[in-house]
Design a binder for these strands. Structure first.
Lengths: 242, 242
DNA sequence: GCCGATTTGTCCGTATGTATC
DNA sequence: CGATACATACGGACAAATCGG
């Protein structure tokens, strides 16, 4: 089942750029040309191009055209602003992923947990600790909190595989928005025990609140990353001056 | 001169949300209502709302409406996916900014620098080291590389104030895109000397390549942040399933 | 379960403004 | 100046999801 038209055009242009069918700094065909080649309206073309701009693949300039500024990144690593599960990320980079479940409990959010996670005090939660291996190396230690009445039927077996696959394919949940905060924190005893930190005494921490399609925050996760393998990519576009 | 219509609507809705004129989880007025209140077309409304979605302020749901998911963040710190200069960021948080210039030289990119920065080998560059203070505390150590034939007339005096103000107001350069990579690295002797790291032995590093409106990459900067004050916010939207 | 009203999502067409060359 | 290109804005049409009766 093909998706929306503008998504198809977006993906087609994206793969063309990735396959270097346009040179770095080259201008893409003009909107009017693209209207002809894809036989669609100008609006549709512009939506596709806007997505490429947001990805940092191209840059537009009024009166000039759309310039390809994509350069293949040697060290592709973590997502480019999207939401991607650990396994998806591993598959994309042709790496083997393994997950070890360290802890699987249920708890009720007290004031302290509520403040840290953003869940309402008194919420019933699943709390898990999971250790993610990439190509055999322990890289990420995750502390997951899930809202129990949304993520129903979660089991240790599922947690060892892929929770997101369960959420999307079994519970048919739509994941929509994720607010993330990145910091650097001192290591804890648990970090030291499971991650091979060498002589680093701190690690990269990504805290995220994830909302489903109904607007309820159903997940809070703190991902603690081994610093020597942590890399986070981002693309920023400057808003027009105030 | 007021800006574009959809930007005005975007900003108006944004401040209304920030001022909590809509409750958390409340639905905003429907598009048809907003068309009436702002007397514009549906397209214009939708552009404004799309920007709010990208900011993580609201979430849309087909058939339902537009839901406010903004929560005031206590620890506002670094940009939400935008490009912001150090001084802009400080002003937004009502803090005092000071910049010390440690080093101001010119150099030519050799193979090693070219590989690290992304500039072509042989490029003539300005290289600066700057130390940024916030409320009197040294927080960020910046290594800046600027393309000399684009950032013409750069002086130590300008570098001590705000380079971006010079670029935009004097050189009338439009900053458009910035590709950023965040990592955690071990501290160097320079870091140790200037930043008060305590017993941290590593720091947060943001490397960025910045492009101007003509599509030329004119800046490479490595920002080395003191970990205890580093915080990076981001909002991610899940693309529809493959 | 069905139907209709509401709401957002997608797509098309057109007109005008503005920057580049 | 004119041609080309992207930016903004308006209008309308239909699809898909949600909700209430």
């Amino acid at each position: 089942m093909p998706k929306m038209k503008y998504i198809q055009i977006y993906q087609d242009l994206k793969t063309k750029i990735e396959n270097q069918e346009y040179e770095f700094q080259e201008l893409l065909p003009s909107e009017n040309t693209l209207i002809f080649t894809y036989s669609c309206s100008r609006n549709t073309i512009r939506r596709a191009i806007s997505a490429l701009v947001a990805d940092g693949y191209v840059q537009t300039q009024q009166g000039k055209g759309v310039r390809n500024i994509f350069q293949p990144t040697p060290q592709t690593s973590f997502t480019i602003g999207g939401i991607e599960s650990f396994r998806e990320s591993a598959a994309r980079n042709h790496q083997t992923a393994k997950t070890a479940l360290l802890c699987f409990t249920e708890l009720t959010a007290d004031e302290k947990i509520a403040k840290r996670t953003g869940f309402a005090p008194g919420s019933s939660l699943y709390y898990l600790q999971r250790l993610h291996y990439l190509d055999g190396k322990p890289l990420i230690l995750n502390h997951n909190y899930f809202l129990k009445n949304v993520v129903t039927g979660l089991t240790p077996e599922i947690a060892e595989h892929s929770i997101y696959e369960y959420l999307e394919n079994t519970l048919h949940m739509l994941i929509v928005t994720s607010k993330r905060i990145m910091t650097v924190e001192k290591m804890t005893q648990i970090d030291e025990k499971y991650l091979e930190l060498g002589d680093y005494n701190c690690l990269a921490v990504v805290s995220s609140q994830t909302y489903n399609g109904d607007g309820v925050m159903f997940e809070y996760t703190q991902s603690r990353h081994r610093p020597d393998y942590f890399c986070f990519q981002d693309n920023a576009v400057r808003r027009r001056p105030l």
